[in-house]
Amino acid sequence: MTPLSAYLLVGALVFAIGLAAALTRRNAILVLIGIELMLNAANLNLIAFWRFGPNPEALIGMMFAIFSIAVAAAEAAVGLGLVIAIYRHYNTTDLDQLNRMKG
């Protein structure tokens, strides 16, 4: 197993864990944590490909990772703002109870 495939496997595992969190947990905040874990796993892949791939001096993978971290931060802020707004409205963050389209 080459180093790159080891890092890719870790990335895949973290991605799967994040996906499981997003799909199985009932709390909306946990779903957001799962999405963050998935984004992070993608970043790990980008950095790993930058490190072991050809042409690292072009910094492409690194730049992708840095921009994706910035986007993930924006996503977390908006997502948690939405969770708080929903909580104010329905007084719950349980996704199984948030199944009405009408407020």
Binding site: S5, L9, F15, A16, I17
Partner: peptide
């Protein structure tokens, strides 16, 4: 959800392990 996550991991892991020879390996 668990089945979907496990399936995704299985597919990605299978792809990574199968493509070991074509992956770049610049040390």
């Amino acid at each position: 959800g668990l089945v979907v996550a496990a399936a995704v991991f299985a597919v990605i892991g299978w792809a990574v392990l199968r493509s070991g020879s074509v992956l770049p390996n610049q040390l």
